[in-house]
Design a binder for these strands. Structure first.
Lengths: 167, 167
DNA sequence: TCATCTCACTTGAACCTTCACGTGGCGCCG
DNA sequence: CGGCGCCACGTGAAGGTTCAAGTGAGATGA
């Protein structure tokens, strides 16, 4: 697919060194569209079927696999790739829905633990099947095992660069 | 090559059929993290160096390659993967900054054309080098040509499923 | 020719994220 | 033991996106 179309007029004269080769550009634009629309699609599915956003689902899922259904806010923030502030607001909302609760770490009051409540676990379990099926249909079962593995590797490779200091 | 890593402990007991196989899950989580953090990184770079968001940059870039620097709002929305409403708000802001203007299509007043202004083109040209360099460092030059091509293909394949009706 | 329908936008409110700052617990150094 | 600084979080305002209506231009049909 895709690509490698020569534009009827070649406007990419002076853009050439400022920009990307046609094939590179096409691939990059596909990635951009994926980054924009895949989260949107997942959010829409979860919102429709479970009234959860993807980050909320991820948070519940992370907690459900943690010992004692408990995680520090900062760890949960890291695991869900969200800022502490965003997480704080989000957990407040989950708390008001009865899915989690917070308490200061008994051992060190500077930390706050987020704790999954039974209602939250129930919510997660009721949301999981449709969500997993959706992820399978869009991604996991849509790519060969090998390609999925490579996709994950590429993602890690890019993430590494994101985390590494400016240069 | 390469190996198939077994996780040291297998926690996926009863989750197994509700969820994904360990390798699948790992790949999927990598993709999720990529979808979350790559846009964030790009936005941060553009914001810092040019006070533009990624969508704004994309919109200017699309317009700059369109004939007469002109595109219908609906076409621009499609090309930037954003809703018409989002685009409308966004273009209003770009308009107030003097980068674009809007006018009703003379041939058919139902359509609205977004038109890139010289100041917008100048903005784009001044933002492009750093942005392109950043994209190269994170993605394009970080993957082999073959892997980049395949990444683009995988993205297209997933996008196709997103666009196809529920089943 | 005029009511009605359709379709591309536009708009304003609600919601969420971001940003900058504020707060409280605990270690540390005197 | 007492002030100081650091660090994990919390909070409120600002800004952007989403959602649900609203608007206006052209097609359609009587």
């Amino acid at each position: 697919m895709t690509t490698e179309d020569e534009p009827p007029q070649a406007p990419a004269d002076e853009h050439a060194d400022l920009w990307l080769a046609p094939g590179e550009l096409a691939s990059w634009l596909s990635v951009v569209r994926l980054m924009t629309r895949l989260p949107w699609a997942i959010d829409a599915q979860l919102q429709r079927d479970a009234e959860l956003s993807m980050v909320e689902y991820m948070a519940l899922a992370m907690l459900s696999e943690a010992p004692e259904w408990t995680l520090r806010m900062s760890v949960l923030a890291e695991n869900t790739s969200s800022s502490l502030s965003r997480l704080s607001h989000m957990v407040k909302r989950l708390e008001s829905r009865g899915y989690v609760r917070r308490e200061a770490d008994p051992a060190d009051g500077r930390f706050t633990n987020a704790i999954l409540l039974p209602a939250g676990m129930a919510k997660l379990e009721s949301a999981a099947p449709a969500h997993v099926a959706f992820v399978r249909r869009l991604v996991v079962d849509n790519l060969s095992a090998e390609r999925l593995r490579r996709l994950g590797q590429d993602a890690e490779r890019i993430l590494q660069r994101i985390d590494s200091p400016a240069r």
